[in-house]
Design a protein around this nucleic acid. Structure first.
Length: 626
RNA sequence: GCCUCCAUAGCUCAAUCGGUAGAGCAGUUGACUCUUAAUCAAUUGGUUGUAGGUUCGAGUCCUACUGGGGGUACCA
């Protein structure tokens, strides 16, 4: 067992925990008596010199040299050095739960500790605590990754972000800034008279955008629901209710591709403002970005990829058709025929075929214009075909009152004057609805409950929805969305080591689907071709439980199942249904033997016959007394 | 979904043409009263992601799988 260095270290530390307990010291007390944080002590050293202080945090380094030791504590604000002298450190004392000099070996780098003493500066100039009492706040059992080289393994950084934060100040600062960014947005909107509401994340009918949803089930209501792909239909109900300025900072779930700028679960600040149109939002969103840049990050120029983006100057506002004309020389406003529009697209080297002139223009825009929009730009006047929820422009109803924000070629928010004519929405939906597209998420059923709300009358309204992750990427100058999401989505996995340590049956495997069938079901399913192995080797792992039923029934029950690997790439097949009753307690070996005789030897011929090409491998049984 | 690269000790990395798996940090033991990547001495630690294959011999070559990265597609 202890052949592994991590397990060895962990065992040493578990022993230290017991030694602390033996000394009468609780290795996991409930609170500390912190009076000062690290960085403020350094910032205000002149006024604090020789003042008493209690600091608390993680011990991140420990340099012992005989009668004098130096440690470093890291708290949320920064680091401060501990100066620990043998002669002035209070002896181990259970009453004060402090650890004395001879017992310092019970402390390890990684432990959470508390140090009490005077603030001073060492001969070498380091602001420190001259420690008089040292307490353990939480004993750490696992070694931290290398202090100097940090955590480089990308997978570990993403799976164990907390380690990245402990070791990497830049990461810590980044996530702190992101929460401050959200706070600044709240303050900005609140000061402008907006009210924040919670809107449902689990929705009976997804709407407000086109995206594949995540489906879930509500047991008590006995029906399927969806995770929100958008919150806007609920914000509009709030507008209908009579609140004129509302917003939500919501979670959005879209069951689509994951890449450097897309994550299935993301955030938006979505607003709705009544009695205004999209021009109001141009000002709102521009001011919001500038406000966040200045108040949280203290500057307006940011590096995005190889570009520098400046939020200070007034943002460029441009009509989409004009931009397309500028870049391509083609004015789609003068084209009325779809075929002509598509042939123009081909000239541009776009081989996708658009179903309408408007959509052709958007393709040309995405292909030729989007990458050129580096400085913050508001592009307005989308074709009506792609904007069913927006209001057409009075001057030219082929286009709608809608704008998108582009920063460094990246789309950072969508905004429009909301279509509040329910009959218009209904007609648009009827015209476009294809029931067969519903399941794929390409198109979806209308939220009729929302239509009804609109029939009571919703004032003219406009909303914005900038994505918070995209915003965070720009402001923290990150190129990967995983570096602004603290817990990015990953396939679940259990390391072999943890599987051993925690007694998990199978390590290093991912959790997937589990199918449970009986021995008879397997035989019939296999023969009918309903089940077939996907790999050349099929592993049979018998698993037994021995149940003590003596209290009730005066007997022992052995139940077993076989975990079969090889049938599903991403899951396990479990064959259950074996039960045997004994009068007295059976020993594990004989129970296993009986199980194998009765079950496996029944199973093996069936599998060999049905799957002649598969290699059947039988593993040692596991399990035991419950 | 497709293409491609990566996986060696707890962490960071070596290992020549296919030929005995090594180092630093961390850990353990000891020395040391101004260190700060402390230093010095000794020492523990490995089924090279998993399962197969080729070979006298595989960390290295081949196949499949798992996990991750990058690209691309779909997608606000």
């Amino acid at each position: 067992m202890a052949s592994n260095p991590l397990i060895e270290i962990r065992n040493f530390r578990l022993e230290k925990i017991e030694k602390l307990r033996a000394l009468g010291i609780n290795p996991f007390p409930s609170k500390s008596h912190r009076t000062h944080y690290a960085q403020p002590i350094k910032d205000d050293f002149d006024n604090l010199i020789e003042q008493p202080a209690v600091v608390a945090g993680r011990l991140v380094s420990w340099r012992k040299q005989g009668g004098l030791s130096f440690g470093t504590i890291q708290d949320q604000t920064g680091r401060i050095q501990l100066f620990v002298q043998k002669k002035s450190l209070e002896a181990t004392n259970p009453e004060k739960s402090c650890v004395g000099y001879p017992d310092l070996s019970l402390m390890d780098v990684g432990d959470l500790v508390e140090a009490e003493g005077a603030i001073f500066r060492t001969q070498r100039g380091e602001i420190s605590i001259r420690v008089e009492r040292l307490r353990i706040l939480s004993k750490s059992m696992r070694p931290l990754p290398d202090q100097w080289f940090g955590l480089k393994d990308r997978e570990q950084i993403l799976r164990k972000r907390y380690l990245d934060i402990i070791l990497n100040k830049e990461s810590q600062d980044r996530y702190e800034k992101i929460t401050l960014m959200v706070a600044a947005i709240r303050k900005f909107l609140n000061e402008r008279g907006f009210l924040e509401f919670n809107t449902p994340v689990i929705q009976p009918q997804y709407g407000g955008g086109t995206a594949k949803p995540f489906k879930t089930h509500v047991n008590d209501l006995g029906c399927d629901m969806y995770l929100a792909i958008s919150h806007e239909l609920y914000l509009k109900r709030l507008i209908t209710a009579g609140y004129d300025k509302v917003y939500t900072i919501g979670r959005y779930f879209r069951n689509e591709g994951i890449d450097k700028s897309h994550h299935p679960e993301f955030s938006m600040v979505e607003t709705m403002t009544a009695y205004e149109n999209y021009e109001y939002n141009m000002e709102l969103v521009e001011s919001m970005f500038r406000h966040v840049a200045k108040t949280v990050f203290g500057r307006t120029v940011f590096k995005v990829g190889e570009h520098e983006v400046d939020f200070e100057p007034k943002w460029k506002r441009a009509f989409m058709a004009d931009l397309v004309q500028e870049q391509t020389g083609m004015d789609f406003r003068n084209i009325s025929d779809v075929e002509e529009a598509n042939s123009k697209l081909k000239e541009l080297g776009v081989h996708e075929v658009a179903p309408s002139v408007g959509e052709a223009m958007v393709l040309a825009f995405e292909e030729k214009v989007e990458p050129t929009l580096i400085q913050p730009t508001l592009v307005y006047g989308h074709p009506v075909e792609i904007s069913p929820l927006a209001k057409p422009m009075e001057s030219d109803p082929r286009f709608v009152e809608r704008f998108e924000i582009f920063i460094a070629g990246m789309e950072c928010g969508d905004n429009w004057s909301e279509q509040n004519d329910p009959k218009h929405l209904l007609d648009t939906w009827r015209k476009n609805y294809k029931p067969e597209e519903k399941e794929s998420g390409d198109f979806h059923a209308l939220d009729f409950d929302f239509i009804e709300a609109l029939e009571y009358g919703m004032p003219p309204t406009t909303g914005i929805g900038p994505g918070l992750e995209r915003m965070a990427m720009i402001f923290t100058e990150q190129e990967n969305i995983d570096d602004v999401i603290f817990f990015p989505m990953m396939r679940p996995s259990v390391s072999k080591l943890n599987a051993d340590l925690y007694g998990i049956e199978k390590g290093a495997t991912s959790f997937g689907e589990e199918l449970v069938v009986t021995f008879d079901e397997l035989a019939s399913l296999s023969e009918s071709g309903g089940l077939a192995p996907e790999t050349a080797t099929v592993t049979l792992q018998p698993h037994l439980h021995i149940w003590d039923l003596s209290a009730k029934e005066g007997s022992w029950k052995v139940s077993g199942h076989v975990v079969v690997e090889g049938f599903f790439m991403n899951g396990t097949l479990r064959i259950a249904g074996y039960t045997q009753v004994y009068d007295k307690k059976p020993d594990t070996a004989s129970a296993n033997k009986s199980f194998i005789e009765q079950a496996i030897q029944q199973l093996e011929p069936v599998m060999k016959k049905t799957f002649p090409n598969a290699r059947i491998k039988l593993e040692e049984p596991t399990g035991g007394c419950v």
